[in-house]
């Protein structure tokens, strides 16, 4: 599904990604962990086409990220820490706008259905600026999946969320996984990573330091490996 070969990204004189090689199969839910400044978010932004790589090749679903970027963009839903929503618009207006950009058919029904699914039907005509962080993130989740993406790119999606919003987000990721959606999630939250992911990638100094599968939501294994690699605890 996602093939990354020798990916590098240089900004000014700093090499942020130093030859990343990565292969992700369809339906996998992958957590990308690492310390601040390791290059996790940069890797995600390159995949989201927000940043152009300095060198290397990225293929998504057989499509070249550079040449077929419009087709590639249709495949993924991007959910960063920011909401990407217009404050003065209502949830419905925000979803209609992004739905139209993605060419979603019957966009109004789809938007109404998503607002209902994230539990905000009562606030459908309220401007987003009046919402709490948790409510905004619920609409942001709906925005990211309005076009039923095949790949989800999540950048620290659990930060600042209440328990209800965390549950909704996790349920969305798991239900998308059941539909065959691939998920890449950059996070510092080991508990959530262990909860919903079946593969963990640890990034350190712009390189992949470890790549392993986890079973049985094993938080202990994730913490142990992370501490050994990043913090040098044996």
């Amino acid at each position: 599904m996602i093939e990354i070969k020798k990916l590098t990204k240089q900004a000014d004189n700093k090499l942020i990604l130093r030859g990343v090689d990565l292969s992700i199969k369809q339906g996998e839910t992958v957590a990308i962990l690492g310390p601040n400044g390791a290059g996790k978010s940069t890797l995600l932004k390159v995949l989201a086409t927000l940043i152009k790589p300095t060198s290397g090749h990225v293929k998504i679903n057989g499509l070249n990220l550079k040449k077929d970027h419009i087709k590639v963009k249709k495949l993924f839903g991007y959910l960063p820490h920011s909401s990407l929503l217009y404050d003065h618009y209502t949830p419905l207006e925000n979803l209609l706008f992004f739905g139209e950009l993605y060419g979603v058919k019957d966009v109004e029904n789809r938007a109404r259905q998503l607002v209902k699914e994230v539990g905000l039907s009562f606030f459908i005509n309220e401007p987003v600026k009046n919402f709490s962080r948790g409510m905004i993130q619920r609409i942001a989740i709906a925005r990211a999946i309005i076009h039923e993406p095949k790949i989800m790119l999540l950048d620290e999606p659990h930060t600042g969320l209440d328990q209800g919003a965390i549950t909704i987000l996790n349920n969305v990721v798991l239900s998308m996984k059941e539909k065959g959606c691939t998920t890449l999630m950059v996070t510092h939250d080991f508990k959530q990573a262990a909860e919903i992911c079946d593969r963990i990638i640890i990034v350190k100094n712009g390189k992949i330091a470890d790549d392993f599968s986890i079973n049985n939501k094993s938080l202990g294994l994730v913490s142990e490996k992370y501490e050994a690699l990043v913090e040098g605890v044996l």
């Binding site: 419009i70 963009k73 920011s82 990407l84 929503l85 404050d87 950009l101 925005r143």
Partner: peptide, 14 residues
């Protein structure tokens, strides 16, 4: 504000 430009840049358009 809210990085909405990123939302436009990741949408399937030039």
């Amino acid at each position: 504000r809210n990085d909405t430009m990123h939302g436009l840049l990741v949408a399937p358009m030039e």
